[in-house]
Design a protein around this nucleic acid. Structure first.
Lengths: 236, 236
DNA sequence: GATGGTATGATTGTATACAATTATACGAAA
DNA sequence: TTTCGTATAATTGTATACAATCATACCATC
């Protein structure tokens, strides 16, 4: 039930103080500047960003709903660090939901979306052969967003985009994974299944695609000392 | 990625002005007092509830993340009505996620949780035989919450509780559905599958349980003129 | 020395004041 | 009559002031 992915919202985030504060704090939690259980004080952050308490407070309320901080009334705001377990859970949840999304896409995808997917995959193959990691990552992003938009469900699209951005923010600080070829092949398979209107197959493939992506992160040692870097001493 | 389900949060909602404003507006959107695309003005709502703009604004920010209103910078806050399609989508999404939840519960449920489930089902059978609709609804709620808590995933628990509350708020204004017996039988089946640690079966049953619940709403004519009541003239 | 209570400071909650932006109304020019 | 521009009003964005609550330190008492 979140938001923050339409154009208007991006404009807000860019030009309003609240939006800037919100994004800044979110980044700082995700990249580990603010550690788990750390207290965030309104004045301190306000001074750091050169704004008053008002926009900071509004940003706090949003961050709380995003689950990134916990606000205890009359006491303070405390960082809720993201744990390795959370990332795993998100991938498993996404696995189910991307499956559902691919299923619905079989019925509702438009010709234009199918064409953009095809182009996307074609381009990704090209950049993979050249080793252009930056572009591959961008195209991967875009592929999933097309898929989300093609399912004809604002609810599901919303949810998946949120999760997608969420893990993206975490992943992007690490090296981009070297899975371009395999991943793109899976994209092609999903697209083919959607094109031939085979919902069972599309769902199953999208399901597995997400699980593979997760396993890839695992075997690349992404998590090896993630918690150490993002949690402070008193673990739970 | 939402929140608003732990005890602390409830305390906030009850005693802080912001929390009261937030709940009030949410109710008013869900029960149709504020129609689709209606503009919400900060001062007007503030005066109506006897508070200043500050808590109203903070509530607005939260409502935006919940997807209930859309805020256009420097312009205003506009209600985003819930459409029949959204409710259907939520049930289908929940179907997948409750399945995943039941699967994980097989591994992680505690003895106490299993016992509470058993007691819950027992009580529900009793009240069903007596026709105590109020209690049946309450027990149904509780059953699902136990299930959510038993999956050992804060992420999934969070998400499912949000959706659960969301549809609950919509459903409760209508007559309580008369599905007590069948629903409770399905609860029992899910519990048995979890108890015997059969994740495939548990997932499949929880899946189907949600689809049945949705079909029941359909055949009870719940949606017949829902949009008419909750959307204003210019539909999309 | 340990314990408890009070005073002080720090922090959040709310209200209000001011600035910036947007909508509306009115009139002049074509 | 229509259209454009300007002035005015309304509304949101931000900053600040004040109130309420919570944390800390210090001192009195046992």
């Amino acid at each position: 039930m979140n938001s923050s992915n339409d154009l208007k919202q991006e404009v807000t985030d860019k030009y309003s103080l609240r939006g800037r504060v919100f994004n800044r704090i979110r980044e700082d939690i995700l990249n580990g500047k603010y550690k788990d259980h750390e207290e965030l004080r309104e004045v301190a952050i306000g001074e750091e960003l050169g704004v008053s308490r008002t926009p900071v407070r509004e940003a706090f309320r949003q961050l709380e709903l995003e689950g990134l901080i916990q606000i205890i009334p009359n006491k303070g705001a405390y960082v809720t660090g993201i744990k390795v377990k959370d990332i795993k859970d998100i991938y498993m949840i996404r696995s189910k939901l991307e499956g559902l999304c691919a299923r619905w896409a079989c019925e509702h995808i438009t010709e234009e979306q199918l064409e953009e997917m095809e182009e996307n995959i074609f381009l990704a193959e090209f950049h993979a052969s050249k080793g252009h990691m930056e572009q591959i990552a961008e195209l991967d992003n875009r592929f999933h967003n097309i898929l989300y938009e093609s399912c004809n469900s604002k609810m599901l699209e919303h949810l998946l985009k949120d999760y997608h951005q969420y893990v993206w923010r975490i992943r992007k600080q690490s090296l981009v994974t070297k899975r371009g070829n395999a991943s793109n092949g899976e994209h092609r398979a999903i697209m083919e299944a959607i094109k031939e209107k085979n919902p069972d197959k599309a769902e199953q493939l999208a399901n597995q695609h997400m699980i593979n992506a997760y396993n890839n992160m695992l075997s690349n040692g992404f998590f090896d000392d993630y918690d150490d870097e993002h949690q402070d001493e008193n673990q739970e």
